Amino acid sequence: MGRAIALGVPLVAIAEIVVFVLVGSWIGYGWALLAVLAASFAGMMLLRREGMRAWRGFVAAANAGQHPGERVIDGIVGLGAGVLLSVPGFLTALAGLVLLAPPARSVARRGVQRWTERRVSSAVAGDLFGPRKVKVHRGSPETDDAIEGEIV
């Protein structure tokens, strides 16, 4: 994971410079710079909003005795979108905007939840997300007799 980040950050920086030069030559460098600054400012505002929303959701779930994991993960995805928008550049801003779209946000939430469940113990995952739903197959794989249940 560390190697991927060490390789990915310079590649993203180079790609951002290339895209900035292309966009700048297309619409003008002043407008391109203004667009990058506007996206970064919007990302900072989004970071503040999503951070407060995530905290309120966590507190509300904890006070109601519910599992706070889904709200925390939704906040993490929103914060990730804000961080991507805050980083100067068109590619990261586009990735942040895509992450704000409900379908992409839903996919990202599921991915973050699966990643979290793999990295923490079953007890912690149960405390965060509630009981896991599983399908248990009986007999041979040809027959599709599935029993749905929850692991507690």
Rank of each mutant, 00 (worst) to 15 (best):
G24R: 11
R49G: 08
A64R: 05
V107I: 15
L97D: 03
V136K: 13
N63G: 13
A54L: 06
Y29A: 02
L37W: 07
G78D: 03
V112T: 09
L85G: 01
S140C: 11
F90H: 02
V124Q: 09
V107K: 12
A64S: 10
F20H: 03
L47G: 02
S106N: 08
G89N: 02
V87N: 02
W55K: 01
V124K: 07
V124I: 11
P68R: 08
R56I: 14
A61F: 05
G96R: 07
A38T: 12
R53D: 09
S86Y: 14
M44T: 03
E148N: 08
L99F: 12
V98G: 06
R118V: 09
I147S: 08
V59Y: 07
V21Q: 02
V112D: 00
A54N: 01
P68W: 11
M52C: 04
R56N: 15
R132Q: 04
G43P: 05
P88Q: 00
E50N: 08
L128Y: 02
L79N: 03
D74H: 14
L84T: 03
P102E: 00
R114W: 05
T143K: 05
S122R: 15
G78C: 11
G139D: 01
V23Y: 10
G75N: 01
S121G: 12
H67Y: 07
G75A: 02
L100V: 14
V98E: 01
E117R: 13
I76K: 06
F41L: 14
V18M: 02
V59M: 12
L91P: 00
S40C: 10
E142D: 10
R105Y: 04
G43H: 09
A38S: 10
I147R: 09
G78E: 05
A95H: 09
A146S: 11
A125F: 05
K135P: 00
D144L: 13
R110L: 12
